[in-house]
């Protein structure tokens, strides 16, 4: 009897690693199966903290002009433009904002990465954005004409998490992109050349009322 108990003890001792692993996996599976928390909803003009960036959505519109903020739109294509204020919350100048906004595309649409233009003076593509200096930018996605976009377009805001040092080099790292919020903007249609409407003085975003953000271009 005592030898049988000893055998059982030995077995548990040798298999303790796998036992713990199986139990942990089970617990995580059970916890993961719960209902997913709904994504936080934001209005135009409301600041959204998204990791490296603070995003303030302003307006969205569709254009078939040949050039939208310096982005070429060929015949048979349309451009979806989303204007936001971006504020760099990190400690260094950055251009890594392409993946911050992701519109909920109609099924079957897979556009390329957006072009991002700085709306100050002459629009400039792929601008460098500096720490703590909010700027109005436009995300421009070029889509085929055949895609029908909804009247109100929900847009996911994606944030990365900051890690002070990675395990290999000990350098700071932004990682693990996650949806942290969603805003929905009515889609305007711009036929005339869209110029102006960009901030002209030192205060690009602060005084911009949310209402004017939505009525332009419709």
């Amino acid at each position: 009897m005592s030898s049988a108990l000893g055998k059982l003890k030995t077995r548990i001792a040798t298999g303790v690693g796998s036992t713990v692993a199986v139990c942990t996996a089970t617990v995580y599976t059970i916890m993961g199966a719960g209902s997913v928390a709904p994504v936080a909803q934001y209005q135009a003009g409301a600041p959204i903290e998204a990791g490296r960036w603070q995003v303030v959505p302003h307006r969205a519109w569709v254009s078939t002009e040949k050039r939208v903020y310096g982005v070429r739109v060929k015949p048979g294509q349309q451009a979806l433009v989303i204007e936001v204020d971006l504020n760099n919350r990190s400690a260094s100048s950055s251009r890594i904002y392409d993946e911050t906004l992701r519109p909920k595309w109609p099924a079957g649409t897979k556009p390329q990465n957006p072009d991002v233009a700085l709306l100050r003076d002459d629009p400039k593509l792929i601008p460098l954005l500096h720490p703590g200096m909010p700027e109005r930018v436009a995300y421009v996605w070029v889509l085929p004409d055949s895609v029908t976009l909804p009247e109100k377009l929900p847009v996911d805001v994606i944030a990365q998490t900051y890690k002070r040092m990675d395990n290999l080099y000990g350098t700071p790292l932004w990682t693990n992109p996650k949806v942290v919020g969603q805003f929905t903007l009515p889609l305007g249609h711009a036929e005339a050349p869209v110029e102006g409407g960009t901030p002209t003085d030192g205060e690009p975003s602060a005084g911009m009322p949310a209402a004017s953000a939505t009525e332009r271009g419709s």
Binding site: A91, S92, S93, D121, K124, P127, L128, H130, P131, G132
Partner: peptide, 13 residues
């Protein structure tokens, strides 16, 4: 490099 360690790259404008 600002006093609190904020690092501003050369302007690309």
């Amino acid at each position: 490099d600002g006093p609190q360690g904020l690092r501003y790259e050369l302007s690309d404008r």
